[in-house]
C-alpha cells in the first residue's frame, strides 16, 4: 500500500507542476486586465509583474520613494540629476541611484468599465450566443447521425467514403474561400447568419470522426439484442448509442461552441454590418493601426473567456462518468 500512496503523491506533484505551467496564460491575462496602461509592458530586460501595481503617491499626488529604508516624498530632480526629497519633514538632496521607486498594489478596474464602453457588448454577445447555440445544435444532431452510419452499420464502400470525409479537412481553407463565398452569395446568404449556421446541420467531419471512434467502442451485442427486440436502426441510434456516448457528445458540444465563440475570419467575411458582429470581431475594436488598448483588450478577453471556462467546468463532469460499461454490466 505504501507504494500505492507514493505513486499517488508523485502523480499529484506532477499534476501541480504541470498545472502551474498551463495556468500561466490565463493568470497572465487576468493580471494584465487589472494593470494600468503604463505597467502592462515592463521596460526591456525587466520582468513583468504578476500583481498589478502603480507608483505610490502621498495625499497631494507627489510620488513616494524609498531612501535608505525610509519612505520619502520625491519633490523632483534638478538639472544635475539630484533628487530633492522630503524625508521626516526635512528637505534633502540625494543622487538618483540612492532612491528606489515605491509602489503599491492597485487593481485597475477602469479597464473593465472602459472595455464595456468601447463596444456594444450585449449586442455582440447576443449575436455570438445565437450563432454558437444554433451551430452547436446542428453539429451534434447531424454529426452523430452521420457517425452512426460510418461506425455501426456495415455497408459496401463505407470505409472509402469515410476517407472522403477525412479528406475534406485536408485542403487549406484559403483556396476554397473564394468559390465558397460565391456559393453563399448565389444563395443570397451573405450578410446573414446563415453561412455561419446552416452548414453545421450537414455533419462536420471532425466530429463525425470523433463520434465514429466512440460509437465503434460500444459492444455490438447491445445493437444485436435491440434488433432482435425489433428495434429499428434509428431506434438503436437514439435509444442505445446516444445515451452511451455522453462524454463524446459533451466533447462535441464543448468544442463546437468554443470554435464558434472564438472564430474571427468566417463571421468577418460573411457578416456585412457592425450590428451583426460577434465578440471575436469586436475584440478588434481595441486594436487600431497606431494604438492598442491593451488594458481593456485584456479585460474583455477575460470577460469572454469566463463563460467558456464555466461551460467547461460544468461539462467536464460528463467526461468522467464512465457509464458505458458500468451501467450495463448487469
Amino acid at each position: 500500500m505504501a507504494t500505492n500512496r507514493f505513486h499517488r503523491y508523485a502523480a499529484m506533484a506532477a499534476l501541480v507542476l504541470f498545472a502551474a505551467i498551463f495556468i500561466m496564460p490565463f493568470v497572465w491575462m487576468l493580471s494584465t486586465s487589472f494593470k494600468h496602461e503604463t505597467r502592462i509592458f515592463p521596460p526591456p530586460g525587466e520582468y513583468p509583474q504578476w500583481i498589478p501595481r502603480i507608483d505610490a503617491t502621498d495625499a497631494q499626488g507627489r510620488p513616494l520613494v524609498w531612501h535608505r529604508g525610509q519612505s520619502a516624498v520625491d519633490l523632483g530632480a534638478d538639472e544635475k540629476g539630484m533628487h530633492r526629497l522630503l524625508e521626516n519633514g526635512r528637505e534633502i538632496s540625494v543622487a538618483a541611484a540612492d532612491i528606489a521607486r515605491r509602489e503599491r498594489i492597485r487593481f485597475y478596474w477602469e479597464n473593465y468599465t472602459r472595455a464595456f464602453q468601447m463596444m456594444d457588448f450585449f449586442q455582440n454577445l447576443r449575436n455570438t450566443l445565437y450563432i454558437c447555440l444554433m451551430a452547436t445544435l446542428g453539429t451534434v444532431l447531424s454529426s452523430s447521425l452521420v457517425a452512426y452510419g460510418f461506425a455501426r452499420i456495415p455497408w459496401r464502400g463505407r470505409d472509402a467514403l469515410f476517407v472522403v470525409v477525412l479528406a475534406s479537412m485536408m485542403l487549406p481553407y484559403q483556396v476554397t474561400l473564394i468559390p465558397l463565398f460565391a456559393v453563399y452569395s448565389k444563395l443570397g446568404w451573405v450578410g446573414s447568419f446563415k453561412p455561419l449556421i446552416v452548414p453545421y446541420f450537414f455533419g462536420v467531419p471532425f466530429y463525425i470522426f470523433l463520434l465514429r471512434q466512440f460509437f465503434k467502442g460500444i459492444p455490438e451485442d447491445l445493437s444485436a439484442a435491440a434488433r432482435i427486440d425489433g428495434c429499428t436502426e434509428f431506434g438503436i441510434y437514439a435509444r442505445i448509442i446516444l445515451p452511451l456516448s455522453k462524454p463524446a457528445l459533451a466533447t462535441t458540444v464543448l468544442f463546437q461552441f468554443l470554435f464558434q465563440w472564438g472564430d474571427f475570419l468566417n463571421p468577418l467575411i460573411y457578416l456585412q454590418d457592425d450590428r451583426q458582429y460577434t465578440l471575436a470581431i469586436a475584440l478588434q475594436q481595441f486594436q487600431s493601426q497606431h494604438e492598442s488598448a491593451w488594458g481593456p483588450l485584456m479585460a474583455m478577453s477575460t470577460v469572454i473567456t469566463l463563460p467558456v471556462i464555466l461551460l467547461f467546468f460544468l461539462a467536464q463532469r460528463t467526461f468522467i462518468q464512465g457509464i458505458t460499461m458500468s451501467g450495463l454490466k448487469g
Binding site: 452499420i153 476554397t176 450537414f202
Partner: peptide
C-alpha cells in the same frame, strides 16, 4: 440504412463543399 444515416453529410458535401473543391 448506412446511406440514409450519412445522407446529411452527402447533401452538405454536394451542396457546399464539392463546388469549391472542384473549382480549386
Amino acid at each position: 440504412n448506412g446511406l440514409l444515416f450519412i445522407s446529411p453529410w452527402i447533401a452538405g458535401f454536394l451542396g457546399f463543399e464539392l463546388y469549391p473543391l472542384l473549382m480549386s
